[in-house]
Write a protein that binds this DNA or RNA. Structure first.
Lengths: 191, 191
DNA sequence: GTCTATAGAGAGATAGAC
DNA sequence: GTCTATCTCTCTATAGAC
């Protein structure tokens, strides 16, 4: 008996492969090999590739939400928390484990598989909007800004910066874009 | 004899399929069917799928650069041109034909296939940075901003907004994020 | 230039033994 | 629960006729 059960190893294996290769390029065989499980084992625990992928995506989404929520709940001003979140350590060239899947046609066109992505981003926009509202009350941000719109822009900068970094084969565009949005968010002096 | 030659039809077909499905999910067979060309025909004009994909990606990149350059060269202030570019008509749920490919592992990990993406985004950042510099000279933007950083952030917002829209299955997050970055770029009043 | 035939490999799953 | 055998399809390409 392994440290974790077979179903868990299959989910972990699938999460890694979805992040690395996407849905289409993730084969049952590769999943099994990485999980050290046989075919019969996989089809005993899951009805097939879609069901296993759904379990893996949900897990990744839940973990991301928990992790980001903890980061954004830390002490400090709203602006400081947002700064820390944008500047935190990231495996930039691997991309976002959730955002990456949105480009996958098989996922984007499947209601079940897409749902966790939609929920994750919706939660993130709401969480950031709340922080921005708080920052406006504290006089950190221009009171005329729409918190929901700024929050959406912040999420976009992160996701788009991953895209630019992967296109460039370098983290430079990522870092540049983050510094750009931070400058716009809290200008050195008035505009 | 067709209106356009076979090689051109193959390239056009590949461009469409790469946009819709990505590299891995685009099969020679599907390319041939959409181009109304046989297998022998395709392998006569191109050495294989990678060569055809490269020709298709280059074409898409060149076309995007030409199109955006024309848009950004229009009359009006720097800010007005950037606004018009961000707000232009887009097929949001289809995603960006170039940015979409950056998430494709087979493309991101292949120097030849990735190069056109890198060049396109580098050009776009430079083009926007030039406009921002001009806008600073005209007093439209805070002179303390780094044009290259703000340009990278603008590109990220576009790319990331495509990602959010596809995840949501709706254009709403896209529109929200664009309005957010525009508000940060030119606040209604001082910050 | 374009066609059809063929081929080795892998995808994704099912069947039935253990 | 896990294993091996088997199956049908598709992928990507090559070969050689026309």
């Amino acid at each position: 008996m392994s440290l974790v059960d077979t179903a868990e190893r299959l989910i972990a294996s699938t999460r890694e492969l979805l992040w690395e290769r996407g849905y289409g390029a993730t084969s049952p065989k590769a999943i099994q090999e990485r999980a050290q499980a046989g075919q019969g084992s996989m089809y005993h625990h899951f009805s097939g590739k879609p069901a296993l992928a759904l379990a893996a995506i949900r897990r990744s989404a839940d973990e991301l939400v928990a992790q980001v929520d903890e980061q954004l709940t830390s002490s400090g001003t709203a602006l400081a928390r947002i700064r820390a979140y944008l500047l935190r350590e990231r495996e930039v060239l691997r991309g976002c484990p959730i955002g990456r899947l949105a480009q996958d046609t098989e996922i984007a066109h499947n209601e079940d598989l897409r749902a966790p992505l939609a929920e994750t981003f919706e939660w993130l926009r709401g969480r950031l909007a709340g922080l921005i509202t708080q920052g406006q009350a504290d006089g950190e941000f221009n009171a005329g800004l729409d918190p929901a719109a700024v929050a959406a822009a912040l999420v976009s900068v992160l996701q788009g910066s991953y895209v630019q970094a992967r296109a460039a084969g370098s983290t430079d565009p990522f870092d540049l874009a983050i510094s750009g949005i931070l400058a716009l968010l809290s200008p050195p002096e008035g505009n």
